[in-house]
């Protein structure tokens, strides 16, 4: 039976918006946490840590995100961790985001002049305080624009989760498209939602970049 494209159809797509936002927020939050560890390892000055984190970043930047999601979805059960689509997608996106954010923040940390760390060290500040009080505040400003820019990529990237059966915005649009036989309308509405979320973020990222370029 063909359903009409009515208010209910829009509500289904809207629930997909919610899933996309939740998934993006979790991936960004957990990816941010692990990304910070990656960035710290990458700038630690300890050869082994630097090589490992560098290889980690290279792997996730050098393979498609879809493949990373497949690996999480089909690979974890092989390793003895049966996963549902939610868990697989969360883990896949977290790993992906941690590699990209780690690389962005590594750049920010390394852009802070060496003299800053030296001055902090010469005052007797511990590594923890050198990073927290001197390096991070300066690296944060430099990294903010690319970080917001990456969050846009991540939100759009969550659409790939549809392929392993996770119902987010793209997948819910696909469901409505097949039940109403109005694919253009369904995907059009989904597109408007994506744009409404991502465009303001992109604008914000560009404004930040301009602001800090002017100050620098």
């Amino acid at each position: 039976m063909i359903q009409s494209f009515d208010y209910n159809a829009v509500l289904v797509i809207l629930s997909g918006v919610k899933a996309t936002l939740i998934l993006s927020a979790i991936a960004f939050g957990m990816g941010g946490f692990f990304g910070l560890l990656v960035a710290l390892a990458r700038t630690s000055g300890i050869k082994l840590l630097e090589r490992l984190s560098s290889a980690y970043i290279d792997f996730f930047q050098g393979t498609p995100m879809l493949l990373q999601l497949f690996l999480a979805y089909y690979g974890l059960p092989v390793l003895g961790f049966p996963v549902n689509p939610w868990t697989a997608v969360t883990i896949g996106l977290t790993l992906h985001a941690s590699a990209y954010l780690g690389e962005i923040w590594r750049g920010g940390i390394q852009a802070v002049p060496r003299g800053q760390t030296e001055a902090a060290a010469a005052l007797g500040l511990s590594y923890h305080h050198r990073m927290r009080d001197v390096v991070f505040p300066q690296a944060f400003r430099l990294s903010l624009a690319p970080t917001v820019g990456f969050s846009v990529q991540l939100i759009k990237g969550t659409s790939l989760a549809a392929i392993i059966g996770f119902v987010e915005l793209s997948r819910s649009a696909q469901i409505i498209a097949s039940t109403t036989y109005k694919p253009l309308l369904a995907y059009g509405v989904a597109g408007i939602f994506y744009f409404a979320i991502c465009f303001p973020l992109s604008m914000y990222s560009m404004r930040l970049a301009k602001k800090y370029n002017r100050e620098a």
Binding site: E118, A121, A122
Partner: peptide, 20 residues
């Protein structure tokens, strides 16, 4: 190292004040 640095002040050519 941190303990010794705390007792030894250093002034650099490029000042290296914390700009933030």
């Amino acid at each position: 190292v941190d303990a010794i640095r705390a007792e030894v002040g250093m002034v650099f050519q490029q000042f290296n004040l914390f700009p933030h």
